[in-house]
Amino acid sequence: MTTVLRIRRDLVDAIVAHARRDHPDEACGVIAGPDDGSDRPERFIPMVNAARSPTFYEFDSGDLLKLYREMDANDETPVVIYHSHTATEAYPSRTDIKLAQEPFAHYVLVSTRDADEHEFRSYRIVDGVVTEEPVEVVESYMFANTGSDDLPDA
């Protein structure tokens, strides 16, 4: 399993903007990506927090079904599941850990407790075990792994 989240800058910005917009309530959503093992977040899907709460989030059950049907039809998987903490640090709470049920997702936590600086961190949560992983922000997924040896001959 990959232990780094590689994610495009525009997607990070979109998550943070959503978290800021819904503050002081928790914001939540998914970034879907191809279900081919590439582990590449691509499609930003902000979700409504049905709990509309500063301390809890939950996808609406109808929206959840629609989301998974859509991903299924597109051969996508929830590569990133994000939510915000609006008064505490960007670390999974006991509730987050207990309820995490996507063992292959990167769980992204954004803290908006500071009005100017946000925290953006990523975790794997599997069977109650939290593992923080580095976040590598890239401008594009293309070329990023291309070393000089792979450049076409001039």
């Binding site: 998914v30 979700m47 301390t55 059950s61 008064a87 505490t88 509730t95 987050d96």
Partner: peptide, 12 residues
């Protein structure tokens, strides 16, 4: 019939 785990959590 579709079974889906809730996507939920919170700060506490």
């Amino acid at each position: 019939v579709t079974i889906l785990p809730a996507v939920a959590g919170g700060a506490r």
